[in-house]
Structure formats: C-alpha cells, structure tokens
Nucleic acid binder design. Structure first.
Lengths: 147, 147
DNA sequence: CCTCTTTAGTTATCATGCTAACAAAATAGG
DNA sequence: CCTATTTTGTTAGCATGATAACTAAAGAGG
C-alpha cells in the first residue's frame, strides 16, 4: 500500500518531472523508494500486532509511558503529543487499554479535567512480550537497507 | 502517527537493544528515523488528497492505468497487484471512481468474470490537476533528506 | 457432459485514522 | 464575582485499510 510496487521507474520521472522543475528526477525516485520501503515495513509491523490482537498505537503508548524517566505516568495530552496521532484516536485507544487492564487512570485533584495514565503490571508484561518480535522486524528492515 | 516524535533516542536503544542482539543500535535508530520521516510524508500526502476530496489510492490507480504503455486499460486483478492493496479495498475504490466518472469499465467477451478499466477524460484531467501538488510534496521531502 | 477445483471479483464486518463539533473545568479581566 | 475565553478531553460520523467468507465463471479430469 501507499506506494506502487514498481513506481520508481525512469519513464515516470521523465514524463512528469516537468511538473516541478527544481527537482532532480533521481531525488524523486529516492523519495518514492524510501516511501515504498517504509510503507511495506509499516504494513509488516501492523500485521505483527494485529495477529496478536494488538496494534502499533497501543504498543507505542505503552512504550512512551514506560520510557518516561521522571514519572511513572503521563497525562492524556502528553500522550497525544508524543504519539502524534489525533486526540479522538488516542481517547478511543486508551479507553480500550484501560478496559483490557493495560493502563490505569488517576485524576488530578487540582485540575479535574486532567487524566493521568500509568502502566499496570499487565501493561509492563505486554511490552516484554511484544518487544522482541517488533525489534526483529526493525532489524530485518535495517539489514535490507544495507544491501 | 506510526512513529514517535522523539523516538530515536540513545536511551531507547541501550535499554532495549538486548532484545535482539545481532542488531547495532545505530541501525535501529536509522530505521526508526526513516519510518518517522516516511510516515510524516505519507500523512501530508494523504491530507493533500483529502483536502481535495480525493485519496492517494484513487490517484495511484489513475497513474498506473495512465502509465500502462501498451494498452489504455487495466484488468481489475492487475490493478490490485500493482497498487498492492487488498482486493476488497480496490473493489470499493474503483466502484466510487466509476460512479464519479473517472474510470469506465468494459468486460471481456471471452471471460465474463474479467473487468477492465480505462481512464475517462475526467480521469486524465484529474491526474493533471493533482500531479503538481503531489510532486511538490515529494520534492519538499527530498530537500529535507539532503539537509 | 458432469462434477471438482481454481480464478476473478464482491460482500460483510471490523480496526484505526481523520475532522468537526461538543461538554466541562479552569482562567482572565472587567 | 461573573461573563468570556481557553484548555482538556469526548462524542459523532466518515474514510480507508484488513481478513473471511461468498458468488459466478472457467478449466480439468474422469
């Protein structure tokens, strides 16, 4: 998805290069090649999590809370900013993660709008379970880029 | 989306590198950096088409039919293979494109299962309209990668 | 021919992304 | 204080991706 199997061909660039003069055709081919590689890897990663009834976004949310060095929780808006996905998607995803026992919510006494989320033990275990396979996919991609 | 705003940090690699020994931490950082760059560009591209009530997939379908050098049509299954998206998504997308007059369908007398699709004049015009902005986004990304 | 398998494409259902519009709490400023 | 604005997070609705299961036509083998 996202990019054509055989897109970066010379005819494409020569045919369409006139549309935006400042660009070298080779640069466009490079960008398209990178997009293609990345979209395949993203698809593999998403398939990896989907096969385990999980999702990349849920995994990333676990990771960023775990990585926070000074606290064991993050505020909703901090999560949104770090994962860089729209707020409604984060609302929905976090709701599911609380329901399945991966996150716990605790409010703020001073500001009743704020919601903070921490990892549960199950959430920490989930990272441990999923990390090796995830890392392996990244590593396989790194290997290919060197060839 | 897809990758964290600040993911490729040293602590992440040192903390998790043990999960998959053969990998150099720098390689993982490179892959994550590439994923991040690509996912931002994909998001920009999708936003570009969405703002114009279109989609990347519809655009790619137009392009691959247009690029076919020996014929002015493609069979459904050829489109599926080239765009590398699941068949049901292509069915739905092409249906919409026929309804909005961008593609025309013509069957095959010998094999009644087969459906071939060609660009209409509106479909060709659509490519002309959308290509410059698309190319510009690719070019902006190419520029950034060099810096 | 007549069944069985394969191929081509569709339908149904769900997950995850988005924007727009909203509700509730906090803050600002007269 | 009391209204107006800002901030925090949610709800509603839609677009686009996936898989599983299906229909219909073609081909294969007795």
């Amino acid at each position: 998805m996202f990019f054509l199997k055989d897109l970066p061909t010379p005819d494409m660039t020569s045919q369409y290069a006139r549309y935006y003069a400042p660009l070298e055709p080779e640069q466009i081919v490079d960008v398209l090649t990178e997009l293609r590689r990345a979209s395949l890897l993203i698809r593999d990663i998403e398939a990896y999590f989907r096969e385990r009834d999980f999702s990349l976004l849920r995994f990333l949310i676990l990771i960023i809370i775990d990585r926070q060095s000074d606290r064991d929780y993050l505020q909703f808006s901090e999560i949104v900013e770090k994962v860089d996905v729209s707020k409604p998607v984060v609302t929905r995803t976090i709701k599911c993660m609380v329901e399945t026992g991966l996150l716990s919510m605790h409010g703020d006494e001073a500001d009743k709008r704020i919601k903070n989320y921490s990892l549960t033990d199950a959430g920490k275990a989930c990272i441990q379970d999923l990390f090796p396979g995830y890392f392996k996919l990244l590593g396989a991609a790194a290997g290919k880029s060197n060839s």
